[in-house]
Computed example of a mutant assay.
Amino acid sequence: MIKVSILYPYREGGRFDIDYYCGTHMPLAARLFGASLKGWSVDAGINAGPPGTPPPFVAAGHFLFDTVEAFYAVFKPASDTLLADIPNYTDGGNGTILISEVKVAV
Rank of each mutant, 00 (worst) to 15 (best):
G39D: 11
R11L: 08
M1K: 00
E69M: 02
E69R: 00
I18R: 11
G93W: 07
P77Y: 10
I6Q: 02
E101A: 08
P56K: 12
K103E: 14
P9S: 12
D17Y: 08
S5W: 01
L28D: 11
Y72V: 06
P55W: 09
F65R: 00
L83V: 14
T96K: 11
A48F: 11
T24V: 15
T81Q: 14
F65N: 00
D19L: 10
K38M: 14
H25I: 07
G52F: 05
V74Y: 01
H62C: 04
F33L: 01
A70H: 00
L98T: 08
G93A: 07
W40D: 03
L28A: 15
A78K: 03
D85V: 07
V58G: 10
G92Y: 01
A84Y: 06
P54D: 07
Y72Q: 14
F16A: 07
T24S: 12
Y10E: 09
R15M: 12
Y10S: 10
V42N: 09
F75K: 02
R11H: 13
L64M: 06
Y89I: 05
I18N: 08
E69Y: 00
P77L: 14
R11T: 09
P27G: 11
G34N: 06
R15V: 13
D80T: 10
K38I: 01
I99E: 02
V74C: 13
S79V: 10
M26K: 01
I86K: 02
I86T: 09
V58K: 03
G49D: 07
L64V: 02
F16G: 04
A35R: 15
H62D: 04
F16I: 09
A44K: 13
F33V: 02
E12G: 04
D80M: 03
L7A: 15
P51Q: 12
L98M: 13
G13R: 06
I46M: 09
H25W: 13
P51C: 04
G45E: 07
P50F: 08
I6H: 00
D66A: 13
T24H: 13
T81R: 11
G45V: 11
G61Q: 05
C22W: 03
G34Q: 04
F63E: 00
F33E: 02
L98Y: 09
S41P: 02
T81A: 10
I46V: 14
D17C: 10
I6V: 15
G95V: 13
A30E: 15
I2L: 03
E69I: 01
G93I: 12
G14D: 10
F75I: 04
A105I: 08
K76R: 15
G52E: 04
V42I: 13
A73M: 05
L37R: 00
L7F: 15
A73C: 03
G95P: 15
G49L: 08
E101H: 10
T90W: 04
D80Y: 07
